[in-house]
């Protein structure tokens, strides 16, 4: 009896909660729409090109206005890797690992450099087109995962060793802090961009936006290293052979 009632009660509860969720969202939109005067979004879209040199406003917010939050987010990924490493322990690649078929491996080994093109493009053009450090970094991580899945874990560990990933992650984190410190050295605030005197360039060209491309590259490397090492920690285990 109780087994039947509980899911139904939970369903009713969740539907009520969903109604409340909807009303809150509606209310949030209605409170904002009645105001006159400048809106925050107009402020961002009209002044971000002059203030940051980045045409993509989302990247401008992530890497300039709220760059400190991005640093915090990088820390969250770092913490996730640390926790996964603490829970799962050192990955031990198994010898008898299943790989993809010969044709797929042959094809992949010649196509993989082309796959590398997309993340690099997304990271490099983060300030002028959709994309940026996060998206490009995750695509890089997926590429590392693809190498592991296609060629087996031992080969993947040889090509992209975990030590290298960890080093890249440390280096990118230190680089982020160093770029932030550069802002202070120049006489502005932590992670300041154009206010610290970095050249803005022509908005819309590849080399523009002060330190935004550098931050994009660093965040991309950090996210790529963090997420792919998460995968390696998760996959690098024998399926409960020795331990119980």
């Amino acid at each position: 009896m109780i087994r039947r009632v509980v899911p139904v009660a939970a369903g009713v509860f969740c539907l009520l909660l969903a109604a409340g969720f909807f009303l809150v969202l509606r209310g949030a939109v209605e409170t904002g729409s009645g105001r006159d005067g400048p809106l925050l979004r107009d402020l961002f879209t009209t002044s971000s090109v002059d203030e940051t040199g980045s045409v993509n406003v989302v990247t401008a917010i992530l890497m300039d206005y709220r760059a400190f939050d991005t640093l915090g987010e990088a820390t969250v990924i770092f913490t996730a890797v640390a926790v996964a490493a603490a829970i799962l322990g050192k990955p031990r690649p198994t010898e008898s690992q299943r790989t993809m078929g010969l044709l797929s491996r042959r094809l992949l080994s010649s196509v993989l450099p082309l796959f590398l093109l997309f993340p690099l493009f997304v990271i490099a053009h983060g300030h002028i087109s959709p994309g940026g450090g996060f998206q490009g970094g995750v695509s890089l991580a997926v590429l590392v995962i693809l190498i592991h899945v296609a060629f087996g874990d031992p080969f993947g560990q040889n090509v992209v060793p975990l030590r290298l990933l960890v080093m890249v992650e440390y280096g990118a984190a230190l680089g982020l802090v160093a770029v932030g410190m550069l802002g202070i050295v120049q006489g502005a605030s932590f992670l300041a961009n154009l206010a610290a005197g970095f050249p803005s360039g022509t908005p819309g060209s590849l080399l523009s936006g002060g330190v935004i491309p550098v931050l994009n590259l660093l965040v991309g490397l950090k996210v790529a290293a963090g997420l792919s090492s998460l995968y390696i920690y998760l996959s690098g285990h024998e399926a409960s052979r020795g331990d119980r």
Binding site: N56, V58, T59, G131, Q135, V138, S139, V142
Partner: peptide, 12 residues
């Protein structure tokens, strides 16, 4: 931007 991130993270 969100669409791109969701495609890469969610599906990949």
């Amino acid at each position: 931007d969100v669409a791109m991130a969701e495609a890469v993270i969610g599906a990949g």
